[in-house]
Design a protein around this nucleic acid. Structure first.
Lengths: 247, 247
DNA sequence: CGTAGTTTTGAACTACTTCAAGGCGCGTGG
DNA sequence: CCACGCGCCTTGAAGTAGTTCAAAACTACG
């Protein structure tokens, strides 16, 4: 991510989620149909922003939280000694910037990885909604819980898995998330650079490269740049769970 | 932790937090004095349980969440391939078993590391309280947020720090938490075994041992079994933040 | 005082990193 | 539109941090 166009304020607010293909997977979905109105009322859909756009920066006062509408983003944390660490890859329907309610500042930086669109809910609106409707609360907390579970998974992976297992698991996780969005699970595009994947997995980018080519040679994947095709999913799963490296 | 006495139901409920030394640091603290009544009303303090007691097991239906009152505990997760991973060390005032509200099953196992006491709040009580009083909500979410922040820290440490840095940071973190409980920050007891520390930090127990003795030789610590004295805190902090290993 | 579990220490090994060079892809400007 | 240049990815070779295996020393506890 070279240049950082800080288009902090996004353009134009359109009407709602009504025309969103992903509605069924997104926040309003978790609610019944009746209270959804209230939610969709405060959600502002924004026009796509270009790659490299910073949604918000770590430490800035929190004014809103977001949902990814299209495209993808990464969330990063700059730790005390100044190095940037990739915390997660964000895909459509993912919640952004709401590590928990009542936060006063953002605790990570979020950058678009490609031309992407986001939906915005301003914190006061959310808070009001939260108070009004218990269903909304529940839905929101469900999203938070999802995130916590994902973080725990990432943490276990980081602490106790080999490089092979980490990469295999990363690919499979992405595959699963894409499948949940209705896309092909075996034909995927890595929105992150090798560097970013490496940072996310606690590896050197060279290692990610090597593992990927080794998987290719072993017939598990076919990789070409950011495009990956999963060929032998069962074995890939075995590797992700700590089985012997292929061949 | 050899034998696992599953004293699942704890004994006797005493009156409240009124006589708790740590009240000021605990959940009711985050509230003003007025609403505290409501909270303390549903908190049941329990008698100490022996080391090895299982508070609850991963996968069991969630009936209550807990606060550590005295002693210490560890939370562990058994991952898909069956190995146990230590997720966190739990000290007095820490919340246990509430990754988020509205959880239906426990997502980790919690075991007492020494003779320890816990306070219990049953989920229906909490839910009711939550609905009644926004202050309680806020206090609870503050605790959840604390936990999320700690998890993020752990994750960064796991992914991007050397063994030296991890161990140094672990010791300092513990020191800080003990200090927050009013104990001596430089004179601490590790409630976890080397194995557990290692698991928590994503290392081999031998490595933890070696690092600890190296720190001792370098005059940063003095270690004897589970007892640790911090001698050169500034350097220890430098090491924790990635500085060159000592000597 | 003896036994079982835990911790420490040692020695060999391995997985991953680091450094360095070459190639590929892509956007930019001529 | 093509060529150039820059960043990203890949590959290699050498180095190292941490692991693994194994045995000895310590500790706690009956």
């Amino acid at each position: 991510m070279p240049r950082a166009a800080t288009l902090h304020m996004l353009s134009d607010a359109s009407r709602a989620c009504d025309d969103c293909r992903l509605r069924a997977r997104c926040l309003p979905d978790h609610l019944g149909d009746t209270p959804a109105r209230e939610v969709t009322g405060v959600i502002r859909a924004h026009r796509p922003v270009p790659r490299g756009t910073v949604l918000f920066r770590q430490g800035e006062p929190m004014t809103a939280f977001y949902l990814v509408r299209s495209g993808s983003a990464k969330s990063t944390v700059t730790d005390e000694d100044g190095s940037e660490v990739v915390m997660s890859l964000l895909l459509p329907t993912d919640m952004v910037g709401a590590g928990s309610l009542d936060q006063t500042v953002y605790h990570s930086t979020v950058v678009a990885l490609e031309r992407s669109a986001f939906c915005e809910i301003r914190t006061p609106d959310l808070r009001r909604l939260f108070r009004q409707d218990e269903e909304v609360q529940r839905a929101f907390l469900a999203k938070v819980r999802e995130r916590i579970a994902a973080d725990r998974h990432a943490r276990i992976r980081l602490g106790h898995a080999s490089a092979d297992a980490r990469v295999a698991d990363f690919v499979l996780e992405l595959s699963g998330r894409l499948a949940a969005l209705g896309r092909r699970p075996d034909e995927l595009v890595l929105p992150l650079s090798r560097q970013d994947i490496a940072s996310c997995l606690g590896l050197a980018s060279e290692t990610v490269s090597r593992v990927l080519t080794r998987f290719t040679e072993a017939g598990l994947l076919s990789v070409s740049g950011k495009h990956v095709r999963i060929i032998d999913r069962p074995v890939l799963e075995a590797v992700a769970h700590g089985a012997e490296p292929p061949n």
